[in-house]
């Protein structure tokens, strides 16, 4: 592929039901049994990410899988089907704000303002690699694209993504763009591939 741009990323967070007795990752570890995490089925991104995160955090887990999408398994966690769940921040945020969910870890390196004040991020947890799991919105084109065509597309995309009207529409929809050029997109992809390769046993499941 020829990578043209990165439009932004949605990092993951670890959350438990709003009324759960689990307050942080230490409580999760101290349960004395594998933590039950809701997710979609084997082979899905959420299933693989959940296993990688819990492996890196050294928390034994079992999966409550079979939900048909991220919204369903997040609701499953709110209902108490499992002890917790791992989902992307935009999905967790609205339920965190309403008190239905409690986010206990943010799997991102938050340089400035965190969407969950007081919640430890990947740096505080000492696992910055977990930030590489973030869902990235990359834009690509077929391989071996001529350089002049690539440049035109790359410039046009950057122009479109920084256009005030585009920014306004996306902000109204609750989504922010972080436009970056194609070389950054390729670098992010390589980082992800490297991380997922290390944990390919969960993908092969």
């Amino acid at each position: 592929m020829t990578w043209l741009a990165s439009a932004g990323a949605d990092p993951y967070g670890v959350a438990v039901a709003g009324n759960s007795s689990i307050k942080n990752l230490t409580d999760m570890k101290a349960l004395g049994r594998p933590v039950k995490m809701t997710s979609t089925g084997p082979g899905s991104t959420s299933y693989v990410v959940t296993h990688i995160v819990m492996d890196v955090l050294d928390i034994p887990m079992s999966s409550i899988s079979g939900y048909r999408g991220s919204s369903e398994y997040v609701i499953g966690a709110m209902r108490g089907d499992g002890d917790g769940t791992i989902a992307v921040v935009p999905q967790l945020l609205k339920f965190h704000e309403s008190g239905d969910l409690k986010t206990i870890a943010l799997l991102a390196v938050t340089a400035a303002k965190s969407p969950f004040p007081g919640v430890p991020d990947a740096t505080v947890l000492g696992k910055p690699d977990l930030a590489k799991l973030a869902i990235r919105r990359l834009i690509g084109a077929p391989p071996n694209l001529p350089d002049d065509v690539r440049r035109i597309l790359e410039d046009s995309l950057m122009k479109a993504m920084t256009d005030p009207e585009t920014v306004k529409i996306l902000q109204a929809a609750g989504s922010d763009l972080v436009p970056e050029p194609g070389n950054k997109a390729a670098a992010y992809l390589n980082e992800s591939i490297e991380l997922y390769t290390r944990y390919q046993k969960y993908i092969q499941e």
């Binding site: 609205k94 239905d100 929809a173």
Partner: peptide, 11 residues
Amino acid sequence: LILHGIEPGPM
């Protein structure tokens, strides 16, 4: 809904 700036959720 999202196209029209309406974000579904508890609020």
